[in-house]
Amino acid sequence: MDIQDNKGLASASPIFDGFAKVIQVATGAVLLALVLLVCTEVLMRSLMNLSLGFAEEVTGYCVVMLTFFGAAMALRSNALFQVSFIYAHIPSRIQIWVHRLFILMALITCLILAWKTQDLMFSSLSRGKFAPTVLRTPLWIPQLIMPIGFSVLSIFLIEKLLLSARKLKDL
């Protein structure tokens, strides 16, 4: 899968490592919570004829979190989908510049999406919009996950940019 020479969990600084650790623990906790939530709903419904009433709603929020934080973890461990047969065969100096171009394009995409999802969050906040469920969750709270998620992705992309600068120096 990975096409970088910096195999596995290469790090630009311990700060990034610590940050990634926090994200990893948070995402794992969300996944565990999702399992518990769904199982509780299933057990209560089938054994006690009761429903939590918010399992469907909160499951959706968990999926949002797993999507963006999970993608960030995949990006950092070089597991994000890539097609490498052309890239692997170009000279390494050009490779670094192509790699940087790709990082930059991904970064721009992330920043646009962070900006637009942040706008949505503020729109929901100013409209007082809430989920029409028993929890009445103010929607800006779960929607906040999106700009944060894209920011986390951006931070790991910046780390990749830093790593590529170091590589260019080594060459």
Partner: peptide, 26 residues
């Protein structure tokens, strides 16, 4: 046209049925 991106992102990621993916992978 980009102003739709917020709601589209929300609609695309906030999904109950997609939860099947992480659960079965786990």
């Amino acid at each position: 046209g980009w102003k739709a991106l917020g709601l589209v992102s929300w609609g695309a990621s906030n999904s109950f049925t997609l939860a099947a993916i992480p659960l079965f992978v786990l």
